[in-house]
């Protein structure tokens, strides 16, 4: 049971990275972004291209850091992929959502458009990489460490938790210490007031997309390191990510973080009683219960 909780925390980190981005986009841009999961998949595949094609070609050696399953190639691929997805997110915003915002389309049309983006990204991934399961480093035995209390954890998984914590701290500092971060929080709290104070809303929106895209791409790469890559991986995370977002109240990044852990742990612990394929319905049921009991989420104001 303890090892299920530990694994839940690891999955929770990945869900949280997705949910933090989603909750920011939801609040600041005003889109229920159904393409968020597919941004995640895209991030994982961009890192795959970097690790398996671009970086070997450049001449980066195929090293490994001690017990971890990756080395310098992944260290370089990681931020590059985050940056790439950040730009893709901004690109779709400028290409589609900005036009829809200008036409004063309602929120549902924007969500519909993002669902279209989700399918477009997934189809491109399927066309380019096919539908097989792939690994960053195939055929590698990845032994687990044995910790007290019967916990088994792979070194990679410790890295996943550390990376997630690092990114969240970075985001926290960005939002609290930089001018752009403060402007984003202001826009999130009160968009009209932010506008009259002279904050450039379009720039804020681009930054929000960039952060959301980058964080979810990081989640995708971490999932790829832990398990494997598959074109449907991000789509399968979409319901848990939304559940975490709603659980932690829309717009609240710390809520999204906690929501991610709650959903992650609940999904993993449920496998003790249910078939593992029912993880997704478990996340869904939690979401429905929250919507019934407290639709504004645990950190929401009545």
């Amino acid at each position: 049971m303890i090892s299920l909780i530990v694994y839940g925390i690891i999955v929770g980190c990945i869900i949280a990275l997705g949910a933090i981005g989603l909750t920011m986009v939801y609040k600041i841009v005003g889109i229920a972004n159904f393409a968020h999961g597919d941004f995640m998949t895209l991030g994982a595949y961009i890192a795959l291209v970097m690790v398996s094609i671009v970086l070997p070609w450049v001449g980066i050696p195929d090293t490994r850091f001690g017990p971890l399953s990756f080395g310098w190639r992944m260290v370089i691929a990681f931020p590059v992929s985050m940056l790439f997805v950040a730009f893709i997110a901004i690109f779709f915003d400028k290409l589609l959502y900005k036009k829809l915002r200008k036409k004063k389309s309602n929120a549902v049309i924007l969500a519909m458009s993002s669902l279209g983006v989700a399918f477009i990204i997934r189809m491109l991934i399927l066309i380019i990489w096919g539908s097989d399961y792939v690994f960053y480093r195939p055929g590698l035995l990845r032994p687990a460490l044995f910790l007290p209390l019967g916990i088994r954890i792979r070194p990679d998984e410790i890295f996943i938790v550390c990376t997630a914590i690092f990114l969240v701290v970075l985001l926290h500092l960005f939002l609290n210490r930089t001018k752009m971060g403060k402007a984003m929080r202001a826009t999130s709290d009160n968009p009209d007031l932010a506008l009259v104070t002279g904050i450039d809303t379009e720039r804020i929106i681009s930054w929000t997309w960039a952060i959301g895209g980058a964080l979810t791409a990081a989640g995708g790469i971490l999932y790829g390191i832990d398990v494997q890559l598959h074109p449907g991986m991000g789509w399968n995370f979409l319901i848990p990510i939304f559940a975490a977002t709603i659980l932690g109240s829309i717009g609240n990044i710390y809520g999204a973080l906690i929501g991610g852990f709650v959903i992650g742990i609940a999904q993993e612990v449920s496998t003790a009683f249910l078939e593992p394929t029912y993880k997704l319905p478990v996340a869904f049921m939690i979401m429905i219960i929250i919507l019934l009991v407290r639709p504004e989420g645990i950190f929401g104001k009545e």
Partner: peptide, 23 residues
């Protein structure tokens, strides 16, 4: 649970129910 709430919650809930039914 969903029809009292915002439109986009219904969307997420129906997406979830469809996946659940299929599973």
């Amino acid at each position: 649970p969903t029809l009292r709430l915002r439109d986009d919650y219904l969307a997420i809930a129906t997406l979830g129910i469809a996946e659940t039914i299929r599973l």
